[in-house]
Design a binder for these strands. Sequence first.
DNA 1: AAATAAGTTGACAGCGCTGTCACCAGGGTT
DNA 2: AACCCTGGTGACAGCGCTGTCAACTTATTT
Lengths: 340, 340
Amino acid sequence: MTKATIDNVAALAGVSIKTVSRVVNKEPNVRQSTRDKVLKAVAELDYRPNLSARSLAGNRSYVLGLLYDNPSANYVIDVQDGVLTTCRAQGYDVLIHPCNHQDPDIGKEVTNLIRQTRIDGIILTPPLSDVSAILEVLKDSRIPFVRIAPTLQKDLCPYVETNDAEAAYDMTNQLISLGHRRIGFVSGHPDHRAVSHRFEGYRAALVENHIELDDDLVVQGYNSFESGEEAANTLLNLSARPSAIFAANDDMAAGVMMVAHQMGIDIPRELSVAGYDDTPVAHQIWPSLTTVRQPIQAMAQKATDLLLKQLMGKEVQLPASMLSSSLIQRDSTGPAGPAR
Amino acid sequence: MTKATIDNVAALAGVSIKTVSRVVNKEPNVRQSTRDKVLKAVAELDYRPNLSARSLAGNRSYVLGLLYDNPSANYVIDVQDGVLTTCRAQGYDVLIHPCNHQDPDIGKEVTNLIRQTRIDGIILTPPLSDVSAILEVLKDSRIPFVRIAPTLQKDLCPYVETNDAEAAYDMTNQLISLGHRRIGFVSGHPDHRAVSHRFEGYRAALVENHIELDDDLVVQGYNSFESGEEAANTLLNLSARPSAIFAANDDMAAGVMMVAHQMGIDIPRELSVAGYDDTPVAHQIWPSLTTVRQPIQAMAQKATDLLLKQLMGKEVQLPASMLSSSLIQRDSTGPAGPAR
DNA sequence: AAATAAGTTGACAGCGCTGTCACCAGGGTT
DNA sequence: AACCCTGGTGACAGCGCTGTCAACTTATTT
């Protein structure tokens, strides 16, 4: 009950501790009959290898580091879940490490993390995927890492991404096909390059439909609800106000809707609003928000998978994985009203 | 750059490794001049103790386990932040372990966790704080632990709680003072005993104001947005419908508001709605939600603190900590309209 | 000044595991 | 028959640290 070390198992199975080690670590070159004996002993004693000892002796920790700096709790939780699920299945643990991407000492912080905990690999999530101070450190330290939705130096490490621009393009196109011509856009935080790239999709759809890009209709947002409110105040007070507003994330879209409600603008009759991310607020808000769902958990799983593969020595081909986002049609968008 | 072990530091400082160990671990009985020498060497080599080695030799891991099973991403993130902040300050790491409180094997799962990772202590959050299978295991394993907002066997371990019932009482009282007499209540998930205790506050306020508790006005919810919608469907279709609804959490309150909107009921003119938790949705929704803010992060910090104190050998007095929640007045509540 | 207590330091034996390497048996090759 | 493989196994030396305990130095007491 108390303990059960590898020695106990070896004694019970009548083999050396090295053989037990081989079996436990699924190494090849152990006769099947020996393997069975050992497994039986392991089961009988309910043996669990001591991770500290293993880590010390093997010079690896069986722990992955997950770095993030994302104000969206839902995003973080989804990533954590994806990473944890995959890690657990492979006997790895996860060390979560929230940090501040604007901290000038972020590079040193990452160095410390690596040196002290001896984690075996690192997973970077946006916006950290594009922080060059971190990338430098990781490159130098030779520690394997993967990134989720990077936009910079994509050849640096394996990564996973989603077709953000394409989904934004689809969403814009859909608004256009509903008859909207003046479509406002609230862009994402410039530090979150993946988010800000959604603008490209918006622009592409306009171009394709021969609608001129009106600079007045594009407002810089910062991913927060409040910045969505500010943007809406600008957009909805324009002399020729848009009949639709596409915000680069749901929080900002919620901000837009709040302002519209306060101004007595009916959604979607007078104004269509679209978001991006499909956070819980999207379906809790009234009217429920048309948005884009990203496969966050799947991306995290895939990324972890790539990292673990790399750790197992299997070389991972760089061209990475692309998972696709999907449009979620809800009640905040509708046909454009009569032109004003 | 590469490494730097305790031996290197000892050599550079001209002392034994044991002395370095003493200094690094802030043990007493080291002459100040010696301490300085060692610290200088530590700084010069940028030495970081290897946690695996320390853990193996010292029979402790410097890692705390954080167990949770909470569908609210915001709650979990807040707890994580609180725990992490406190742990980092003390040189501890955190192993997060989401799990399912209804899993019949939850006890075994916790046993495995303890056996394998040799974590030094455990932090339990609701609803896990009240899962007796876990409590049994922890009691037997003699591993120190703390609980956040427990309601069962409170003498089992140190804990932190907030004055839930009192805040619910205040909220109800406020609705009453706004003139509401028929106040609906959407109760929390029965497994989340702390949440379901909020009902006590509601009842107490009614009693004190000589308002009879009407069973029709109390509907069982399950903490989810959808259960809030269902409850609202029941309550708002009552022949004598309530002029206010108090939901035991914000998600359910949002569900209530959704149904009200769909039925064309104006909030707060025709119906006041109050929630509990002050999740982000509370201020992103329209109209913004009157609710109660819990000091989640502070509770997590306090709990971690208690646990760490316990680990340092300082005995913690049981009577635990009570942190108080505060009422957040927003736009979803207002004076009761003319009686109908 | 001698005796005792208190403070300070280091030698050394592990903690429980993995890496290295040596060894042995048996099957193919020359 | 001598040779080399290759698969299978174990002996053993650490990994980098902390706990124990003994030894030594410096105060404090008598």
